[in-house]
Computed example of a mutant assay.
Amino acid sequence: MRNNKGQFLTPDDKSISSECEELLGLYVESLKQQKDGTKESTITTRRREVRYWLAFCESNNIDPLAATTDDVKGYIQVNSHLADTTRGSYYRSVQSFYSIVQNDAAEERLKLENGHPCKDRDTINLKEDYNIHENKAEYKLQHDLAGDDIDGVRDGSSDILALKPDQIERLFESVSGKTPEARLRNEIAVRLNWYTGCRSVELSRLDIDQIDWEECKINVRSAKLNPKEHSDLIRRDVYFPEEFRFQLKRWCRRVRHSFSSAVEPNSGNILVTTQSSKMPGPQINNIVKQAAKNAGVQRPLRPADSGPNDEIKEWFVTTHRIRRSAISHWVNDCESLGLHQVRRIAGHARIEQTMDYVEDDDDQIASDYQKAM
């Protein structure tokens, strides 16, 4: 079931067969029995993320109860576009699944054919094997690291890489394109990434019909939240500056339908290609990475000291980096935006996620308190 390069496939959605639904149910019940007192929120997370793992197994013709360490490594690799904390959580849920199954003595079906595939760091070490640091504090911001500072960050420092607005402006000025129309489309993509803080798949979904031109906002469907759990956030409004309205409207109403043979005027996705009515997230990510390279702010993060023939696994500037930078900017630099407002714009399920972006400033607390009172 892998692609023609032998790579693992990412499931099209998170739906699973009735057999895997039953297996998921057995796991959850056993988890509750073995880990009495586990928080309901933890159980909900495990249920959701083990479902992701089971969907991956089905997409790649893997028997979950016979999975090997290589299968789990493949799962980690196909999720390389996600944040460290998200990948870490996904992996912990896989570990939980196999630990619970291995220790279950009551249910006959819960038997592992090849043992626990990811029991401890001796089998898979997220930090050493994949440079995944799960405990990075977002409020420790380092906005302008020199190239030789990268190793310190990768070795476990709490500094987080984030771009400031002046660096983002350089990206806008550095987008490339084979034609003026393509360059305009690419600049629109980079600007929307920064202005809205959307994930790449959400940028791909942005629709002309969902633009409110008067309020300068776009309604978008979340790429991560479960509709049953977060019905109030499954669709959210994201915003763009008033001065961007003319450029965006020019693209949508005058240029877009002449640029692409696959679209109708004034409707459909904002970001398109010459042959397709929807630009996929990875292509938008490539546009951002190339603009960063042109601007001189792009550099490899993994491997740290790559040779001329080594494949770069992770780049400094990506759509996800721009998203995190935008949220950091809103939280720390924009006094008119409150945390709850940023949470809504970012599409975070919990305020704690937004709080991770707060930059502590003890010197400012006293004066801010006096103003507030």
Rank of each mutant, 00 (worst) to 15 (best):
R250E: 14
S267E: 15
N60W: 11
R321D: 01
I160C: 14
T86E: 08
T123V: 05
D360C: 11
A162R: 12
S15W: 11
I270W: 01
S99W: 09
G152T: 14
V94W: 09
E58P: 05
N3M: 01
S261A: 13
K371G: 06
D305G: 00
I345W: 02
M1Q: 08
A304M: 12
H133E: 07
A105P: 01
D70S: 15
I211Y: 02
D122P: 00
K14F: 09
N269K: 04
R109Y: 10
N131P: 00
S157V: 05
K293Y: 07
S276L: 00
R350Q: 14
A291T: 08
H329L: 02
Y27K: 04
F316V: 01
Q353E: 14
N285I: 05
A55M: 11
K5C: 08
Q353T: 15
V78P: 01
E134L: 12
R236F: 01
K5D: 10
I345N: 04
N60S: 11
P303T: 06
S328G: 08
C20Q: 10
L301P: 07
P227Y: 02
Y357F: 09
K35A: 05
Q102I: 00
I284F: 09
P11W: 06
G156S: 12
L203V: 12
N60M: 11
E352D: 15
Q353A: 15
V175M: 12
L141R: 13
G147L: 13
V288W: 06
E243A: 09
I62F: 05
S277T: 03
Y98Q: 06
G281H: 09
P282S: 07
T42S: 12
N60V: 14
T44A: 11
P282R: 03
L171C: 07
Q34E: 14
Y239H: 13
T42Q: 06
D166P: 11
P117H: 07
S59E: 14
S204N: 01
N131A: 14
P241Y: 08
R343N: 02
A349H: 00
W315Y: 15
K289P: 10
V342I: 15
L82M: 04
N125L: 06
V190E: 02
N269F: 05
K5R: 15
P308D: 08
V153W: 09
T123P: 01
V288I: 13
G88P: 04
R343V: 05
A182Q: 05
Q77L: 11
L9S: 05
M373C: 10
S260F: 00
S93V: 11
E108P: 03
R235G: 00
R109T: 14
S18N: 09
E181F: 06
I327A: 05
Y98H: 08
N294W: 14
T123W: 05
K140M: 10
R344K: 09
C216T: 14
N60K: 12
Q341I: 10
Y357H: 12
E40L: 08
N114D: 06
L163D: 00
T179R: 13
V153C: 10
